[in-house]
């Protein structure tokens, strides 16, 4: 069909860009490593074991994490925007981040509240991941249960926001009672970080991410039908409640796990779908979903490269970079096209 032809060039460009950004991302860092050495270490052995270590155990997993995060958050944002017919929706409207923050707040700052006995157990890396997962999972489960009871999809949006408010309030109470050190730890998690994943953690993230991705693929037809509105979708034989559930589960798998491992990454989930719609000038999810995947991964790799501040020892919080880089791009796109695609 005509649609595949028109977009195949754009897809080709995106794939080339992705590969390019991937290598640029790996080649940049506080220690400069020659390009040939990078290739050698990726595809074979090199003599310099410290370079080998930096690339294989730090830069490569970080770049892979960036791809997972960018594509995963982008796709969940796309699904949420279509499901809620709302251009302001993102992967976190269902209260996933708030749930995760709550979980992390409990382990990082709860010690003062629950007494010193827990101090040793808490605050380790894994406990933060587990707490974030549990937190987002609990909030999501509640939203899911409620969503099967309400008829109106918009109600779910409000319910998600309300749970977000409750979580934020609890976090505030917790932070009021905690020490400066604990506060700092909590805030560091909030900055987001791509570089702290081991291969082992990356594997777990990847498995769940793939599951979410597969689910979102099966939702392509549903998402396109929803572009007509729920009543039309129903008249086309779509089971609204069931499809809604599938989309929400896919989103929670993607955004929930990503947040658990990397902290809340702002902006990507909201902006990537908009950028992709503007560039591809379509609302067809058959095109949008793979495009958002590629584009999200590219943007995340670029943001991560920038946050590394090449050739310096500083690493800026990724959360700040995504917004600093992304927001002007979205504004520029909207102003240039003068029309918001949705």
């Amino acid at each position: 069909m005509a649609e595949t032809k028109t977009y195949s060039i754009a897809f080709l460009v995106l794939i080339v860009l992705l590969i390019l950004c991937f290598f640029i991302n790996i080649s940049l860092g506080s220690i400069s490593i020659p390009n040939t050495a990078i290739f050698n270490s990726l595809f074979g052995k090199i003599d310099n074991t410290s370079w080998q270590h930096i690339i294989m155990d730090y830069r490569l997993p970080k770049a892979l994490t960036a791809i997972v995060v960018g594509s995963g958050l982008g796709i969940s944002g796309l699904m949420m925007q279509t499901l809620f017919r709302n251009p302001l929706a993102g992967p976190f409207v269902l209260g996933i981040t708030s749930g995760a923050s709550l979980g992390v707040a409990v382990v990082t700052m709860g010690a003062s509240l629950f007494g010193g006995a827990m101090l040793g157990v808490l605050a380790s890396k894994w406990s933060i991941v587990i707490a974030a997962t549990l937190g987002s999972f609990l909030v999501l489960l509640t939203v899911l249960v409620v969503s099967t009871k309400v008829r109106d999809t918009m109600a779910i949006l409000i319910i998600g926001l309300m749970f977000g408010s409750i979580s934020t309030a609890v976090v505030n109470v917790l932070s009021y009672f905690s020490s400066a050190e604990e506060l700092q730890q909590y805030y560091f998690w909030g900055f987001g970080s791509l570089g702290s994943l081991s291969w082992h953690e990356l594997l777990i993230l990847f498995v769940i991410y793939t599951l979410g991705l597969l689910l979102s693929l099966t939702s392509i037809k549903t998402l396109n039908t929803l572009l007509l509105g729920e009543n039309y979708a129903k008249s086309l034989g779509l089971n609204i409640k069931q499809s809604r559930l599938l989309i929400i589960i896919a989103t929670s798998l993607l955004a929930g796990t990503i947040t658990a491992f990397t902290g809340p990454i702002a902006f990507i989930g909201l902006a990537i779908p908009h950028m992709t719609r503007q560039i591809f000038n379509t609302s067809n999810h058959k095109i949008l979903l793979p495009a958002v995947f590629l584009f999200g991964a590219i943007v995340m790799l670029v943001c991560d490269s920038i946050s590394q501040l090449p050739n310096s020892d500083y690493t800026l919080p990724i959360n700040a970079i995504t917004s600093l880089v992304g927001a002007p791009v979205v504004i520029w796109l909207l102003v240039r096209k003068r029309k918001m695609m949705f």
Binding site: L228, G229, N231, F342
Partner: peptide, 14 residues
Amino acid sequence: MSLVLTEPIVSKNL
């Protein structure tokens, strides 16, 4: 059975 409703479609970008 197919329908034409009074409500506007969600995405006019189609």
